[in-house]
Design a protein around this nucleic acid. Structure first.
Lengths: 347, 347
DNA sequence: CTGAAAGCGCTAACAC
DNA sequence: GTGTTAGCGCTTTCAG
């Protein structure tokens, strides 16, 4: 361990009043310079003010500005979990698009509990942002409506919601049908659903499982409950699911994992058990992440149309920031399938 | 697309004055209730105030509070890139530890450019946070010192810095030596360094490459420039590096990738080329991420001691928030090697 | 083009 | 226990 010079937190900041004094103008003129209200200040005054700003190292106090005008220029993205690559890719897409409108993105973690998701909506926290994009897993329409958010909120992802909140949803049922049809066409007959749930409802797990069951039914097959593995959709869950099935002697010839992350965990588990993909077991993931595209083997995955999801979320949010008071919209991009090496070729 | 009820941004918020009026007390009493200054308000008054708060749906205005007391309870983590799993895991560890001290973590992206890293340090942006943990790639000691941050800053990661800023560094040279010795002991003789650089300096690439070269030298081997692949350390870079080497007919029997992400890309590229790991080519990554532990095959990786990195970063930051004016510290946890299936067993 | 006054919502410091 | 005063740093409004 090395020890070097002091690391104190710096000088007390200069205020607009300090700058005004140094430049021998009023604070209002400083404010006009800082905010580029061009028409309102002469070139020569501006130069003097800028020099003073530079000399004092002045920076505006965002808290004061926000208190006065109520805006921050920052949008928050709330995700259940920092670690899943999908959310990282989502954040990247959103940040790029928002930057084009002069807005900054920061990412918060909700922890995936209902109470955490609602806490973010409390005005006390939301007020630090101009708007919120929320990747929901627990909260639903009624929760959001009750929360009476004071800033525009766009819900993203899983749940079928209908009321009061702009929502960019995923094509959960359609995507699961596509994936299942693809597997059936390639000879799979016993498909394990990692992260699935046979419960009713609009949760991500339930609606994707429903799409899967519909596709089975269309092919004259009945779902088998022992192949629907409830639990998480992270790496460990995918790994554990295939390992447990194999240990229990439950036969299966395909895996539909409800996230790419779970699918990668399943690939690891299958490899560990000496099962080949796609020879012994075919695997389909969900989200079409880059991490899946670089899997071994490369991962066939449901593509929820990530670019469109991001584009719509930003469009809806910008419209609200612009003051739009139109009814809430629900947008559901159509899912497709990105076919790669983890499922067999040909039909 | 569906259209439902209105999604306006909600009611104008109630202020403390509104609550005070409703409860027939002063704003100061409301403030005391809201901030749990227990001793200063009777149970009966408190109940009345809480009822009013509930009835009006009051929430404190954080901007006003911040303007007054200068603190926000929020710590920012700045990372070059939202997508790399390593940063997600880092954010998770930091958020958990900070939560134990009642602090919230938000994640910002710097984009990995020097100007972006410095922009975050500008007081105008930093003032929204009580402190900043910065995963540096471009900025160094002098840059940070010049930035005169107004809040405590802890630098994290790659660069060897020495002055003025608390810094939790990685054991770049030591980790690279360990990894290289491990590969040499298992029979590797031609080790490709993905993301490496033979330039001088303290950059992540340069210092890890230096450790690698030192280990080669200790074994009486000379580095071969054609095996040091400059460029990125993401999935695509790892994939492209091994693909190009194979196409060019440059023989290699091992890969030292400077991140797990690049290593996973390399695994994908090797698999695609029909090369077996660890039979034909052994692979070592860096960061010891969960994503590597679930690779196919599971990834041997340099473990920078992630838990300790997070713990030290939080410890240093909390000390500064507490007002510590001690000299800047530099902490360098010792790296170790997590040995898994991508390198051969035995010695 | 420039400035003075008022106040955003809150809390520290001090009365009572 | 509770209230009063003052002011954090900025921008809106209106007067010059």
């Amino acid at each position: 361990m090395m020890v070097t010079m002091s690391a104190s937190a710096g000088t007390p900041r200069a205020t607009m009043a300090d700058v005004a004094r140094a430049a021998d103008v009023s604070v209002m003129t400083v404010s006009n310079v800082v905010n580029d209200r061009a028409a309102r200040v002469s070139d020569e005054t501006r130069a003097r003010v800028l020099a003073a700003i530079d000399a004092l190292g002045y920076q505006v106090n965002v808290a004061a500005r926000q208190l006065r005008q109520g805006r921050t220029g920052v949008i928050a993205l709330a995700v259940p979990d920092f670690s899943a690559p999908y959310y990282g890719e989502l954040a990247t897409r959103l940040a790029d698009r928002l930057a084009a409108s002069g807005l900054r993105l920061v990412v918060e973690r909700t922890g995936g509990a209902l109470s955490d998701e609602l806490a973010l909506l409390e005005r006390s926290r939301l007020s630090a942002y101009d708007g919120l994009i929320m990747s929901l897993t627990r909260a639903d329409a009624d929760d959001l409506a009750e929360a009476h958010a004071t800033r525009p909120v766009v819900a993203l992802g899983e749940r079928g919601m209908s009321a009061g909140v702009d929502h960019v949803a995923m094509d959960n049922v359609g995507g699961a049908r596509l994936a299942t049809e693809h597997l059936l066409a390639r000879g799979a007959r016993r498909i394990a659903v990692v992260g699935g749930s046979l419960k009713d409802g609009e949760s991500m797990s339930a609606s994707r499982t429903r799409g899967h069951v519909e596709a089975l039914a269309a092919a004259g097959l009945a779902p088998e409950p022992s192949l629907v593995i409830e639990g998480g959709v992270d790496l460990a869950a995918g790994y554990a699911a295939v390992t447990r099935l194999a240990d229990a002697g439950v036969g299966f010839d395909a895996v539909l994992a409800l996230t790419d992350t779970a699918a990668l965990g399943a690939l690891a588990g299958l490899s560990q058990r000496g099962l080949s993909v796609p020879g012994d077991v075919q695997v389909v993931g969900w989200d079409n992440t880059e991490s899946g595209a670089y899997g071994v083997p490369t991962l066939t995955s449901v593509d929820p149309d990530n670019e469109r999801l991001a584009a719509e979320a930003v469009r809806l949010l910008l419209a609200r920031l612009d003051g739009a008071a139109s009814p809430a919209e629900q947008v559901v991009p159509t899912a497709s399938l990105a076919v790669r090496g983890s499922t067999r070729s040909g039909a």
